[in-house]
């Protein structure tokens, strides 16, 4: 396993999440670059590496935060599970279909996260669709960049 390269990409994803977090505002619940990276790994990679990313993200977010373990872990697990379930029926190697899968997973995780933190702060249908659009845009920007880095993760199976 190419773990150093994997953790380098995870570090970059966390750095991006930190840098663009204030710019994204509440939409970071669904368009968090670190979650997008986890979604990309979950699409076509192997379970040990997916679990390594979940572990890395969880440890980073749980130390130095007021967030509870449930609130940190639940969205990560939801992203992984939703993607792994949908990819059984829809090809994760198609460039357009995978964006649909990831957007759905991010929306589910983001809404679960909001429900866990503060269920009374829902932003209605408009907010839901705006979040979906933003998640799609962030995934569409990050995925080509992540696809270019795939030679660093030699054992991964990504679209050619």
């Amino acid at each position: 396993m190419k773990l150093p390269a994997l953790f380098l990409l995870l570090f970059l994803a966390l750095l991006t999440s930190d840098a663009y977090g204030s710019l994204l505002g509440p939409a970071v619940l669904v368009a968090d670059p670190a979650l997008v990276f986890l979604a990309w790994i979950s699409l076509a990679d192997r379970w040990p590496r997916i679990l390594a990313v979940v572990f890395g993200l969880s440890v980073y977010r749980l130390t130095g935060s007021v967030a509870t373990p449930l609130e940190v872990m639940a969205p990560l697990l939801v992203v992984v599970l939703v993607i792994r379930v949908i990819r059984m029926g829809i090809s994760p190697f198609d460039r357009w279909r995978r964006l649909g899968i990831v957007t759905l997973a991010l929306l589910t995780a983001g809404n679960l996260s909001q429900w866990l933190v503060a269920s009374h702060l829902s932003r209605g249908f408009q907010g839901f669709f705006a979040d979906g659009l933003l998640a799609l845009i962030v995934a569409a920007v990050l995925f080509p960049l992540l696809d270019l880095t795939r030679p660093l993760l030699k054992s991964a199976r990504y679209p050619q």
């Binding site: 990409l9 970059l12 991006t16 663009y20 960049l145 270019l148 880095t149 030679p151």
Partner: peptide, 19 residues
């Protein structure tokens, strides 16, 4: 491809630092 990968990582880092 490996060169492209390193370029992508570099560009990503630059974009983050710009932010």
């Amino acid at each position: 491809p490996l060169q492209s990968a390193y370029w992508a990582v570099g560009c990503w880092l630059v974009l983050t630092l710009v932010a």
